[in-house]
């Protein structure tokens, strides 16, 4: 069942001036409850503009955004409820930390919801646990933390609102490999345990291939592909024409196939590729 939906969403920047630019062009998309949806697209493809419509930060030039079936711009109160129901984590969210302690910063969202103290405490600890921030850090100033920890705290600040849809704009940008891995694991765990839908923007095709259940591709503001990772990465050549890459495993599989090794379609995770190649070797193939 769809929880968040856009209908013919269009956004034009600086309308009526020489700087006019169509950032999002007639995008209709529905996010199903509990799914992990990946969004990929080149820089400037409209991804960031698009997701800012999903919690009502930007108002569409044309078209509608529906959350749980209702137009989010119907009334001011509805819009506020949407902010809490659709959590949005911006790129480099660590720059938004401002409170004296980690605990206070994570509780900013729940406090704005008007919750009671006990409820807030419960949610803060729950959110901190999801992103792997220990209780010993709760009374530390967020400015004293390392970059990776700050990022986790910032994500916890959004998770603490218990959103039904969590949107993350490149949550792993600028982190080391171990940090990327564990943040993505945390997010995936959040999705499984709470049943919330997660929308993940990433430039790393390998990450997307591993975690996303469904994948959409934006190009010049338009929705050009929508399907399972297998369906999308099978159109590797089209992706490359758009200036995008494919996962390393797909790249290798394509190169091998070009050299006459018989491999099935839809290879996009390293795990699957390794299984295929091991099977080939044991079967006496050219590997």
């Amino acid at each position: 069942m769809s929880i968040l939906e856009t209908q013919n969403l269009t956004h034009v920047y600086s309308r009526g001036t020489p700087f006019e630019k169509v950032a999002v062009d007639n995008v209709s998309l529905s996010v199903d409850e509990g799914e992990l949806l990946g969004i990929i697209g080149h820089t400037g493809s409209g991804k960031s503009t698009f997701i800012q419509h999903l919690n009502g930060l930007l108002k569409p030039t044309a078209g509608k955004v529906l959350f749980q079936g209702r137009d989010i711009h119907a009334s001011k109160d509805a819009l506020r409820a949407v902010r809490f129901g659709v959590g949005l984590v911006f790129q480099y969210p660590e720059y938004q930390l401002f409170e004296e302690t980690v605990f206070q910063d994570v509780s900013f969202g729940p406090k704005n919801m008007g919750l009671g103290e006990d409820e807030i405490r419960e949610r803060v600890y729950e959110a901190a646990a999801f992103v792997g921030v220990g209780r010993e850090l709760m009374e530390v100033s967020p400015l004293e933390l390392s970059g990776g920890q700050k990022r986790r705290v910032a994500i916890a600040g959004v998770i603490a609102m218990r959103p039904r849809v969590l949107i993350l704009d490149e949550p792993t940008a600028g982190l080391d490999p171990a940090g990327r891995e564990s943040i993505l694991e945390n997010i995936s765990q959040f999705q499984r345990e709470t049943g919330a839908a997660v929308v993940l923007i990433s430039h790393s095709m390998d990450d997307i291939a591993r975690f996303a259940q469904r994948l959409i591709v934006l190009h010049e503001g338009r929705l050009v592909m929508d399907g399972t990772p297998a369906q999308v990465f099978d159109r590797a050549n089209e992706l490359k024409d758009m200036g995008l890459t494919v996962p390393m495993a797909t790249e290798i599989a394509l190169a091998l196939r070009a050299r006459g090794v018989e491999l099935p379609e839809s290879v996009y995770t390293t795990k699957y590729l390794r299984k295929l190649l091991t099977a080939l070797r044991e079967g006496g193939g050219p590997c």
């Binding site: 902010r83 720059y95 704005n112 959004v158």
Partner: peptide, 12 residues
């Protein structure tokens, strides 16, 4: 940017 981020957490 920061304004948008805080608005996303319910600040007005």
């Amino acid at each position: 940017k920061i304004m948008s981020a805080q608005k996303a957490r319910g600040a007005s």
